[in-house]
Design a protein around this nucleic acid. Structure first.
Lengths: 199, 199
DNA sequence: CGTTCAGTTGACTAAGGTCAATTCCCGTGG
DNA sequence: CCACGGGAATTGACCTTAGTCAACTGAACG
């Protein structure tokens, strides 16, 4: 696992600049607040019921995000390298998080306080713009997931995972988490796979 | 139906300022681009496949937003007075809209080009901030809808509509659209209602 | 008074959930 | 090297709930 801190921070900067260009000076406003952190498998980035205060960026490893209801977990996303990760809604609203984010492997990630980001928003146009574009980007995930739940059967959702950019989910995530992500039980996923084989 | 244009515009300003304070001068930057428009029942604000270019704000009436798949419509939201309405994702991405927005009644609404908004974002910090807060706000709807589809049965979703701020959906929207919104057929909704009566 | 469309009801089908038994895989310790 | 243990995945039997198709009811409107 690479642990080169300057390089990790440079990767983050590139991904921030994919949203909005920021000058060296503006970058220096965030840099002192960055921390490189390590999380072991099955540890939590944020737990349901706690207020989220930090925003993360995955350098190496993967996370699972889920809601809990009646003791049952319902997976909404998996996150891999080079993705921002946070209970952003909890940060924005200041309310306790409804979601839990759990490390599915040992994870190396960059962390910084949402509060810092918020201060940058107020101080600086480039950061404000980053905040807008980031939030715009964040609308797209849930929208697609919602559409998928509304439009597709579990079988269709499974087939979707086999193609395109989602393949790494199939490749890296244990099957029972995938079933959970699809909204079904591992038993049903097994049957669906069986059904598909026979075609 | 009230058609007082200055008053309608003032209502819009109040709702914009619920996100970010803007000065009179900043308001003047948007004002000339506002248009008060009328749409008849069953007409469309935006249709699937077209690029969205405008953002709307409902003064009077209601809309339904839906995806289409294999000729079937799947309702995602209803919008009433004092809500922004747009295929915002299409505006943001510049791609053709996946959703259709249809007037469920005759509707009076304010319209302005997304392009104008985008120009204001670049020119002005207050508008940039509005853009961020608006986008942040827009993440919450799909997130909640996604969670509801993942966590709740159709019956639970129906019960939810009977309480709190969602009551106006039950009160104003025909039942077969509600069934569609719940993700089931009108037949099934009828059975669920029946089942609940017997309890 | 008929036409139309929304909503209800019945009979049957399809698909996922549950529970339990079994198999497979993999790592550990004898 | 093999035997055992534990978790993951599969399979079978049975249940629950939504979908489909069709018939019927009821209210709205001309």
């Amino acid at each position: 696992m690479k642990t080169d801190q300057p390089e990790a921070f440079a990767v983050l900067r590139r991904h921030i600049e994919a949203f909005a260009k920021i000058s060296d000076m503006e970058w220096e406003m965030l840099l002192p607040h960055l921390e490189l952190k390590l999380l072991c498998r099955q540890e939590f980035l944020i737990r349901e019921g706690k207020k989220a205060t930090e925003v993360g960026f995955v350098i190496d490893g993967m996370f699972r995000q889920y809601y809990t209801k009646d003791g049952e977990e319902k997976t909404t996303y998996f996150f891999f390298e080079n993705h921002f990760i946070s209970s952003y809604i909890s940060c924005i609203t200041g309310k306790p998080s409804l979601i839990t984010i759990e490390a599915l492997s040992d994870v190396l990630y960059i962390s910084f306080p949402y509060r810092t980001l918020q201060q940058l928003f107020e101080k600086n146009m480039a950061w404000q713009k980053f905040g807008r574009l980031m939030a715009e980007y964040l609308t797209i995930g849930p929208e697609e997931r919602m559409a998928s739940l509304l439009l597709q059967s579990p079988e269709e959702r499974y087939l979707d995972l086999l193609t395109g950019s989602k393949k790494k989910i199939i490749e890296r995530v244990p099957q029972h988490y995938i079933a959970n992500y699809l909204g079904i039980t591992p038993v049903s996923l097994s049957r669906i796979r069986n059904r598909l084989l026979k075609k």
